[in-house]
Design a protein around this nucleic acid. Structure first.
Length: 569
RNA sequence: CGGGAUGUAGCGCAGCUUGGUUUAGCGCGCAGCGUUCGGGACGCUGAGGUCGAGAGUUCAAAUCUCUCCAUCCCGACCA
């Protein structure tokens, strides 16, 4: 492609409305343009990258035995009403009405549609297992679209749905998808981790997320170098270390006399730390939560920890919300709540983080007072112990006892075992070998295609611009003539261009009549892996410079070696 | 939806506090001519604006007031 025939508008300055690197680079490099909040057009260069990602995904899905289909974006309301998600999804779903008043939505996902489709044509165990996928636009009316393609309202996703007759067939599908997803990211050439994910209250017994590692990732991954365990911190299993650091050499300390202390207006852990000059670990954080039936629970944690509500919910098997000024039904003195003298209607659960502590500090359940020298067994009783917090540095891997590390990632893929949730609701049934009518055992598997593009940039860039992995680079070579007005230079470059086309090389030929500096800057910005440069050295000694966008050292070759060089790429 | 901010040429911004010498500017980009030509060159000339929209105050509004819209940031959701 000749630059002068192409549509590749680049920008020198960062756009004002982006604050994440992949977003500003995708705009500056001429990949995308914003149409509305969370909605983007793909320019030729961006579309090329997108197609490359799609093709890798498609090839690996096919290799894994999945079969491509194409379902509509617009879906009738009825099937969503059947699964109840018409109501559960809420305002996140784009809804519309046709001229005769029938309700539709723009699909945020396709479980309902595909299950319905399968139920119409898959009747026998002999047709199973089968895994169907599509690459399609999805719509979600995000409360807050942001970060460009990382959280858009219209985005492209590869979604696959597997149907099996029984659990162990589902396990095989799941495993095949796990492998295919790993292969896809490896082929694209990005660093990633697979983590155990939180399936939420929605259920599903098993779920993995595929995370592209990047500094700006929205998710935090806890992982163990020792045994390869990795999980989203939301879901990480861990043990709290034996408090061997200085803060906690009081494990075997003698129990002291309990004492009430005056702490006027000191409501936060941070203030207490400063006021009492004590480490936050020694302070008991008491978090009050309630469920829909207004049952109230207190969770006790070490002051440096945060309550993981999802763990608390799973432990109590109920939805929970935090108590605040508005729903404070017992009128508790927020900021001064503690386990001692707490209303007896409130059951107390304690995080392991306070188990080995002694002579702790906690609220006195009256405004402006705390207790010190509190000890669990002596001063109050708990209804249960558990792990209710997020892991912290120093916490240990539950599998092997190794120390956990933390790293940021961007979720690009998610695989789920759905079981029979949708097949039961949408009447997706087949006749099994034993003559019984049974619901399909389903799995679903998503990869964000547009998000993958942004994640790749987020992981692979420098101050000059994008550094595309070769697998998804829009062009492999940027052919640069430093001065288009030097006839000899230009005609040599023209010949090189034709030679590359003949050899099926994806080449962008920068034939613009602009200074060499602009061509170099643009080439780096749009991230093309290899620059082939016809300049002064060519005029003097028939030498061509080859420069690489990554940190491979640049080389010089003679012009008669160029074709061999290109053929060996 | 709650909290914060912004909207002036294709992009990035100044002007608004204290309304009037503003015929609304600057940088980049864009068009023409000339000189340059290996890391965003230079000179000259030029095109390009409903100052987000509507209403109001005023002799006079980019500037003051109100309403609306859009966009961005911080929170809960997600590929």
């Amino acid at each position: 492609m000749k630059f002068t025939n192409y549509f590749l508008p680049t920008l020198k300055e960062d756009p004002a409305d982006s604050d994440i690197i992949s977003h500003s680079l995708s705009i500056r490099a001429g990949l995308i343009r914003k149409v509305a909040s969370g909605i983007y057009s793909f320019l030729p260069l961006g579309y090329k990258v997108l197609k490359k990602i799609e093709n890798i995904v498609r090839e690996e899905m096919n290799n894994a035995g999945a079969i491509e289909i194409f379902m509509p974006v617009m879906q009738p309301a009825e099937i969503w009403q059947q699964s109840n998600r018409w109501y559960e999804y809420g305002p996140e779903m784009f809804k519309l009405t046709d001229r005769s008043g029938r309700d539709f939505c723009l699909g945020p996902t396709h479980e309902e549609l595909i299950t319905t489709m399968a139920s119409n044509d898959i009747f026998s165990y002999k047709d199973l297992p089968i895994n169907l996928y599509q690459i399609q636009v999805k719509f979600r009316d995000e409360i807050r679209p942001r970060y460009g393609l990382l959280r858009a309202r219209e985005f492209i996703m590869k979604d696959a749905y597997s149907f099996a007759a029984k659990e162990d067939e589902l396990d095989k599908d799941y495993d095949a998808m796990y492998k295919a997803y790993s292969k896809i990211i490896e082929r694209i050439g990005l660093k990633y981790k697979v983590v155990e994910a939180d399936t939420g209250l929605i259920g599903g017994n098993f779920s993995h997320e595929f995370m592209i590692l990047a500094k700006n990732g929205e998710e935090t991954i806890a992982y163990c170098d020792n045994c390869n365990y990795a999980a989203n911190i939301e879901n990480a299993k861990f043990n709290i270390s034996d408090c061997s650091d200085n803060d906690s050499k009081n494990i075997n300390e003698e129990y002291k006399e309990i004492e009430e202390i005056y702490t006027p207006g000191i409501k936060t852990i941070e203030n207490l730390v400063n006021f009492l000059n004590q480490p936050s670990k020694k302070i008991i954080k008491t978090i009050i939560v309630k469920n829909l039936k207004n049952d109230i629970f207190a969770f006790l944690l070490a002051g440096d920890r945060t309550l993981n509500l999802s763990k608390a919910e799973k432990f109590l098997k109920t939805n929970l919300e935090l108590i605040n000024e508005e729903n404070n039904i017992y009128n508790l003195p927020i900021g001064f709540i503690g386990p001692i003298d707490l209303k007896k209607e409130i059951s107390i659960y304690a995080d392991y983080s306070i188990k080995q502590m002694s002579n702790m500090i906690a609220g006195a359940n009256k405004a402006d007072y705390h207790f010190k020298n509190i000890n669990t067994d002596r001063d109050f009783k708990v209804n249960g112990w558990g792990n209710f917090s997020y892991p912290l540095p120093g916490d240990l891997c539950e599998n092997c006892g190794g120390e956990l590390n933390y790293i940021k990632g961007i979720e690009v893929g998610h695989i789920f075992k759905l079981g029979t949730k949708y097949s039961e609701k949408l009447n997706g049934k087949f006749l099994d070998k034993d003559g019984m009518l049974k619901p399909y055992v389903m799995g679903c598997y998503g990869i964000g295609i547009t998000r993958m593009m942004a994640a790749a940039i987020e992981q692979s860039h420098d101050e000059k611009g994008i550094i595309w992995p070769k697998s998804i680079a829009p062009f492999l070579i940027n052919l640069i003539v430093t001065n288009i007005n030097e006839i000899e230079m230009k005609s040599a470059a023209d010949n090189a261009y034709n030679m590359m086309l003949k050899n099926k090389i994806e080449v962008l030929y920068d034939d613009r009549n602009v200074s060499a500096g602009i061509k170099f800057k643009d080439s780096d910005l749009i991230g093309i892996p290899i620059k082939v440069i016809f300049g002064k050295k060519f005029l003097k000694d028939k030498i061509i410079d080859i420069e690489y966008r990554d940190n491979t050292p640049k080389i010089e070759i003679k012009s008669n070696e160029l074709e061999d060089f290109v053929k060996n790429l």
